[in-house]
Simulated assay, not measured.
Amino acid sequence: MLPRFFALWLVFMPWMANADSGAHHLTIGVLAFGTVNWELAAIHNEGLDRKYGLDLEVKTLASPEAGKIGLRAGSVDVIATDWIWVAQQQQTGADYRFIPYSTHAGALMAPAGSPIKGVADLAGKRLGIAGGALDKNWAMLRALAQKDAKLDLNQAVDKVFGAPPLLNQQLRDGKLDALLDLWHYAAKLEAQGYRRVLDGREALQGLGISEPLPNLGYVFKQSWAGSHAPALDAFLKAAGEARNLLCESDSAWQKILPLTDEPDVKLQGVLRREYCAGKVKSWGEAEKRDVAKLYALLRQTGGAELIGKAEKLPAEIFWPYELKP
C-alpha cells in the first residue's frame, strides 16, 4: 500500500499540472485523511473537470482549522465542514454559505471487552475526539449525554482531541478508553475487533430526529459565489456526478482505492458501501426544519460557545439548493 501522502501526490499532481487555463477556476481545501478526496480524485480521473469546464485546484490541509483560516483569508474558495460552524460564524458577520455533501456522522468506538455500553459509561474515562472542541460529532454526543443521562461530558471525561490516524493508534495502544471517530476510521477499527457503541444516526434518533441529516457540506463565501457562479455550478455538477460514479462504477472506485489507505479487500467494500450510504438523497424545507431542531438541542447543551448567540438557526446560511428523492 502506498504511503498516504504519496498516494495523494500521485492522484493530484498530474491534474494540477494539466489544468485548462480557459476553465472556471476553483480552489478547494481538504484534509489529507478526508473522504472528500475520493470524490475530488474521481472528478479528475473520469474527466468531469473537463466535461464541466472546471479548473479545480486542490490544497491539502493540515487540520480543520487550517481550512477555516484559508477560507477567511481567501486562499481557498471552498472547504468541507459542518453547518454548526457556519451558523456560528454567520452570527459574527461572516457571509459563509452551506450546501449539503454527506449525511455521515462519526461513531463512538471502544475495545471489544470494554465496560462502556452507552454514553453514561463515559464518565471518568479518557475519550479521544477526532476534531476540535466544536466538532459536530462531539456536539451531538454531548447533547445526547445531557438528554439521556443528565451528564455534562465536557466536564465528565478526560478529552483528547486529535487527527483520526493518531487517535486510532492511541486506542490500539490502550491510551484511550473510547474514541469518537470519523466514520471511515471507525469502520477500520470495527474490522480490527473494536466495538461500535453508538453511531451518528443513532445519536440523532436519540435526540428525536428520525432521518439522517447532512451535517457535512461544502462551504464558501456568499460574496465569492456571487461573482463566481459558473465555477460553483460546474463544481457542484462535477462533484455530484463523481459521487454517483464511485457508487455505480467499479472502474471509478478502483482508481481511488489508494486514497482509502486500506489493503484489505473486504474492508474496501465496507468503506464503499458506507460511503454510498451517506449520500444526501433529499434536501429541502423538511430537512432544514430538522437541522433547526438539532440546532436548538445543541444550543441547550453547548450554549453560545458552541452554536452562537442566536436562539434560532440562521436560515440564510443555506445556499439556494434543492435535492429531491
Rank of each mutant, 00 (worst) to 15 (best):
M140K: 15
A139C: 00
P314E: 02
Q169E: 11
L236H: 10
A145C: 07
K293P: 06
L246Y: 09
A296Y: 09
A149C: 10
H104N: 02
L267F: 02
G93P: 01
A187R: 07
A145V: 01
V265L: 15
R201K: 13
D95M: 09
Q254V: 05
S210I: 10
R97M: 00
W15S: 09
D181S: 15
L141A: 10
L294R: 06
A130I: 07
Q89S: 13
T35W: 11
G113I: 04
T260E: 00
Q268L: 02
W253G: 02
S114E: 12
P165V: 04
P258N: 08
D199H: 00
E287G: 03
P214M: 04
E287T: 13
K293Y: 06
V265P: 12
V160A: 14
L204F: 12
S251V: 11
G162T: 05
M1K: 03
N37E: 01
W83P: 13
I79Y: 04
T260I: 07
E316Q: 13
L313F: 02
I43W: 04
P258Y: 08
L56M: 09
L198H: 04
T301N: 07
V36E: 02
G93L: 05
S75K: 01
K136L: 15
Q222G: 13
P164G: 00
E287S: 03
V78F: 08
R4T: 07
T27P: 05
K255E: 10
P325R: 14
M13W: 15
L267E: 10
A229E: 15
E39V: 15
Q300S: 11
Q146I: 01
N154H: 13
M140V: 15
E316C: 05
R4V: 07
G278V: 14
R126V: 04
R243K: 14
L10F: 10
A41Y: 09
A149K: 04
K117M: 12
A42T: 15
V30N: 04
L167W: 12
A178F: 08
W9V: 06
A231T: 08
A191I: 12
E190D: 11
M109Y: 09
V78P: 04
P258W: 04
L313Y: 04
A23G: 01
G269S: 01
L40E: 05
L267P: 05
F318P: 13
A112M: 00
F33G: 09
G132S: 13
D135M: 11
D152S: 11
